[in-house]
Nucleic acid binder design. Structure first.
Lengths: 214, 214
DNA sequence: AGCTTTAGCTATGGCTATTAGCCTTAGCTG
DNA sequence: CAGCTAAGGCTAATAGCCATAGCTAAAGCT
């Protein structure tokens, strides 16, 4: 038994419990957003679900926007992870780019409330904090790296690795997510009226930046 | 003088005044949305601006969502008109398609709050009514016609006029609007970090559906 | 065992949308 | 032109929201 508390310097039990509660709040928040839309999050509703009074939530998050901020950060991390994991399983170059991007899109379609938070500006008073935005830059950098990799492998024209190329790819990704979430929500990635065209979208990008004549 | 009321059967003056007030409400609503984001519309704020009490607004709109609905309808009509007017000035076929689409995108970027209402789902409890949605279908049909025209002129592969082609084009348009409004708002269409790539986006679509070898 | 911190509570304030009901007057109609 | 109708404003009130202040009990660290 003594072994169970071996690695804890100060305030371990409390810290753990606190982290668990925060996680529960975010989990419920995401559920409510799924039902009401990203902008429809209500602290009162979260509290009701948890069986506590609304002001008690302020022990964990300093405001409603702080909850949004935490969700934004979580979403960015998950999106970035999806990109990475998708790309890892594929050969370097274009396959890695396409696998990563596809995995990212799949994640977005499967997590509508978080994706709305990342891709849209659905909450009036809320803009992500600098810390929460950091993973967003990481995701952007990751995509840039994948594009650069495809160019390096000779799979895409070098222009793909310019601002134009990266921004164009961003437009394509945002387009798939936006159309799918706004006009055909609740459908799985593979069947989604828009997300199912992900391969066609990638093909368009490829055709726009064909590899230099070998 | 008699001529001024000639063509009015019943309640003309009142009807006119009422219409003007409704229009003023919508105009102010759009202004407020521009400042706060589409989801941040407040009837109280509208009333304050007009110098009346909030409940008085209910004489003109039955609810906050009814205001959104009217704005949605107005936006769809304006977007559809932009498409039409853009296409009219260009030769039929691909030029008309690209001119129409470009004009539509320009309109969207220049009218952020209405565009958000059309392309995203930024308001929790609101879904457009059937009547307000009708012009949306008209806009979709208009784009479909333009695509069909370009195919008919031999400027695009017939596959462009399939569901995939139309949906792909929708993805591209939504992508430009989404990225521009979410990540570089307030910049003009020509300079927008994403909207300036509209020609590249259209080129990608063209390359994806090259005309049959003549 | 004692003390500190945590995590809950209630009460309160100020905002919101919405409903009900009143009242004045603009302006239509006989 | 006189009278009536209804349009368009108002106040009051309900129910919900976020947020702050301050209290209390117990959890758990030392």
């Amino acid at each position: 038994m003594a072994s169970t508390h071996a690695a804890a310097p100060g305030g371990d039990r409390r810290r753990q419990r606190r982290a668990a509660t925060k996680a529960e709040i975010l989990r419920i928040a995401a559920e409510l957003m799924a039902a009401e839309g990203a902008g429809g999050l209500s602290l009162s509703a979260i509290a009701r679900r948890m069986g506590i009074q609304p002001p008690s939530l302020y022990k964990y998050f300093s405001s409603r926007n702080a909850v949004y901020d935490a969700l934004f950060a979580e979403g960015q991390r998950a999106f970035s992870a999806a990109l990475r994991e998708g790309a890892e399983g594929a050969p370097p170059g274009l396959p890695a780019l396409e696998a990563g991007v596809t995995a990212g899109l799949r994640w977005a379609v499967e997590h509508p409330p978080l994706a709305q938070l990342l891709f849209w500006r659905p909450v009036p008073g809320f803009t992500p904090s600098a810390e929460s935005y950091a993973p967003a830059l990481e995701a952007v950098g990751r995509i840039a790296d994948l594009v650069a990799g495809a160019v390096h492998e000779g799979h895409l024209h070098p222009d793909a690795a310019t601002d134009e190329g990266r921004e164009l790819l961003g437009v394509l990704l945002a387009g798939v997510v936006t159309q799918q979430l706004a006009n055909d929500p609740g459908t799985a990635f593979a069947e989604g009226r828009f997300s199912r065209h992900t391969p066609a979208v990638l093909r368009a990008f490829r055709l726009h930046y064909p590899p230099p004549a070998a």
